[in-house]
Write a protein that binds this DNA or RNA. Structure first.
Lengths: 161, 161
DNA sequence: GCATATCTGGATAGTAAACATCCGGATATG
DNA sequence: CATATCCGGATGTTTACTATCCAGATATGC
């Protein structure tokens, strides 16, 4: 059980766009080149970010993607939900009611909640809260704190992270 | 991204064994029958629980599985780690250093930590703490709180949940 | 208007992981 | 010895993830 690469791709790409600074749209091909990613596939992830309102896309020549909001206004949870969807980490299959012996609940349902599902849900809520508490600006700040040599960022050629 | 069914199977099976009460080992076939699960596959999950020290197995005729410790001493995290392994939810592919443009780190590595990985790791820690804070006894209590009719539990034929 | 560059979305294919079954070997019961 | 069961490896099935490709729409610049 683990998150897909899309999350990593998306966060780094959003940070790259912020580093670039100007509001000029950047095409997928250049964003992909920064980290040697598949342009076609990265594009699919970016489309998800557009749908979620984190990016704006500009079609046509000289088009591309640009941030829809500042990094301060984007949480890690926003990115994860945009890329992975908002399905729960734990999907309760309700096996408790499928038994040949245990409780029989009419197909309609209307039973009390499954305690296992509730417990897993509490943990997922903690995960989401922790993700929501961290903005991309925080992540950028942390990355920079480890890299005091700000001058080493390659502007125009893209920095790293 | 989601947890496998093994977690749900394992938790319900552990609760079933606790409801049974006596220390007699219960064979996989009966445990599987309670929830209409595949006996062969459930057995694989139970083997993981044995390795993790949550269950004891008894080979031979009249053999089966029994709890290795009381529910109070087993956390939801114990079960999740036993079944799913302790790989991180987010696996950092270190794409930040793979770029043709960005930072070049000698293959040896020795760079500062990836801030994206750190942020995701914090969220996972919150998830694990929330799981560790809930014991199977808590889950059982919550299930029973919703089902005041204790007498409805089918002893000998297994209750539900 | 036209050639070019780019996003959009669907179709498709490849790969990895999860899910599930089967079987031979070991162990214990009676 | 016949039976019941756990154990672990081999194998097959299904699902999700990863990745590619192409036709269509849109915008730029000449």
């Amino acid at each position: 059980m683990r998150t897909g690469k899309g999350v990593e791709w998306a966060v780094h790409t959003l940070l790259n766009l912020a580093w670039l600074g100007d509001g000029e749209p950047v095409p997928t091909a250049r964003l992909a080149a920064v980290h040697d990613l598949s342009a076609s596939y990265l594009n699919k992830q970016l489309q998800q970010l557009v749908k979620a309102g984190l990016l704006e896309s500009v079609p046509g020549a000289r088009g591309g993607f640009r941030l829809a909001r500042p990094l301060e206004a984007v949480s890690m949870l926003d990115v994860v939900l945009a890329v992975e969807g908002d399905d729960p980490l734990f999907r309760c299959a309700e096996i408790r009611r499928c038994g040949t012996i245990g409780e029989r609940v009419p197909a309609g349902g209307f039973s009390r909640p499954c305690a296992v599902n509730t417990a897993m849900g509490r943990a997922e809520l903690a995960w989401r809260k922790a993700l929501a508490a961290q903005s991309l600006a925080d992540v950028r700040a942390e990355a920079e704190a480890h890299a005091p040599a700000v001058g080493s960022y390659v502007r125009g050629g893209f920095g790293r992270d």
